[in-house]
Design a protein around this nucleic acid. Structure first.
Length: 391
RNA sequence: GGUGAGGUAUCCAAGUGGCUAAAGGAUGCAGACUGUAAAUCUGUCGGGUUUCACCCUUCGAGCGUUCGAAUCGCUCCCUCACCA
């Protein structure tokens, strides 16, 4: 596979394909820009899709530029319904940016990455400067953007600041003289604004490449923290494995394609295998990517033991009876002490519905006493929560 | 600036004085079934406790009317539409 084919693999859309071919053939080192939103420092597998593509550019010797939107973040984004979204202080933004980068470097090569911040230019800008930029855009063009159009149609609020965001993002491309900008399909419009502004400033227009949005654990909506259907870079290896196993069968292929960068023919071959085995393989491979191959294998073995053979996991949190100030303690109190549960009412519900097992035996009495002389007790709630009570 | 329509739990949405911790969906959680999942069926889905019951908090915010308010009144905040 030649360079351009590899770069085209898995993408959603490209604008400026000929330009890309031309710049590649000139052996030019391309500046590949990716915007970083420091209001959400917790990266999900959704981000991984774009980072993978960025790393492919790095592998070919191009320069990756992570543009931290630190200035835009301190302005505060009123998008969506929760206009109460707090405005971040510069310190918070900086802290978020650091955690973000730490995670991003699990996928991309930190040595080949340039980090820039848009406060570099926006902080110095005057209101008049902003007006000059604003003049370059019309409301009608803004309303071409899908989500703006939709919200406008459905009578939902749109703040003027939101119209400014694409402009600011586009201006970043001007300042960086970006050759390529990457993003999810939801960024398509913003990326095009970058082209428009660059043209206006007499620069070659950036090539725009969008990546498909990764579908979340529910198999329906895009992966997002706000839908709680995500897998985070910060999940434990165990949670990561378990969460991957919980995706519907049909969406596995997108994960192979976008997260593991499998080619289409390799995926066709996988489709002939048993879906459960394939999904375990997917989970193992992804866990291995973050935690190493041994951990991947270990989590698979543990998953099989716990879910297929109903065994008890090897490692689980322990709580000491001594530290609980009560001895003996009731099952409900012990569960409350574990802090795995939202409220005492929830604990009661779980016990009454038969979700809780003590030492492998279903226990429906929430006043069941855990005696210290029979320790350790293993408490299981549902399929996922285990903990051990020790003296 | 004027006129009108709205703001209900995680989300959508019913509810116009007591029987409302608030119908119905969706999501979530748990159980059954399975191949981890999906689908299906069942239960549950504000919180506390001495738990087959009692108590506390919640219907944009505050104040008021009333024995009693998500429901009535006033003030404020926010959103949308139309007209300027």
């Amino acid at each position: 596979m030649n360079a351009i084919d590899k770069l085209m693999d898995g993408i959603d859309t490209i604008v400026g394909r000929e330009a890309l071919a031309e710049r590649l053939s000139q052996k030019k080192v391309l500046k590949v820009k990716l915007g970083v939103d420091p209001t959400r420092p917790d990266l999900t597998f959704g981000h991984m899709v774009v980072f993978n593509k960025l790393r492919q550019f790095q592998d070919l010797g191009h320069e990756a530029i992570l543009l931290i939107g630190d200035h835009t973040a301190t302005v505060g984004d009123p998008s969506g319904r929760s206009s109460i979204r707090p405005v971040l202080t510069p310190q918070e933004v900086e802290q978020n940016a650091q955690t973000y980068l730490e995670q991003a470097f699990k996928i991309i090569d930190s040595q080949k990455t340039t980090i820039r911040r848009n406060s570099e230019w926006f902080r110095k800008m005057t209101f008049d400067d902003m007006l000059i930029i604003a003049r370059k855009m019309t409301v009608a063009r803004m309303l071409e953007r899908d989500d703006f159009a939709k919200r406008y149609r459905e009578n939902e609020p749109i703040s003027i600041v939101e119209f400014l965001y694409p402009l600011m993002q586009g201006y970043d491309s001007v300042m960086l003289e970006a050759d390529v900008e990457l993003g999810g399909t939801d960024q398509f419009f913003n990326l095009l604004v970058g082209r428009a502004l660059q043209k206006d400033y007499g620069q070659p227009e950036q090539i725009v490449i969008t990546m498909p949005l990764l579908v979340g654990l529910d198999g329906k909506r895009k992966m997002s923290k706000s839908y709680d259907n995500y897998i985070s870079f910060n999940h434990s290896s165990k949670d990561m494995f378990g969460r991957i196993m919980s995706i519907p069968d049909e969406v596995m292929w997108a994960y192979f394609k976008l997260l593991l960068e499998y080619s289409d023919w390799a995926i066709e071959a996988l489709k002939k295998r048993h879906p459960m085995d394939t999904k375990k393989f997917l989970a193992q491979s992804l866990v291995a990517r973050f935690f190493g191959p041994e951990v991947g294998e270990k989590e698979q073995a543990e998953f099989e033991a716990v879910f297929s053979h109903n065994e008890i996991p090897e490692n689980m949190p322990e709580f000491s009876l001594g530290a609980m100030a009560k001895d003996p303690i009731t099952l409900a109190d012990a569960m409350a002490h574990s802090q795995f549960f939202e409220s005492n009412r929830e604990i009661r519900r779980l016990i009454e519905q038969g979700a809780v097992k003590v030492n492998g035996k279903c226990e429906k009495n929430f006043k069941f006493f855990l005696q210290s002389d029979h320790c350790p007790h293993i408490v299981q709630s549902g399929k996922r929560i285990f903990f051990r009570i020790v003296p």
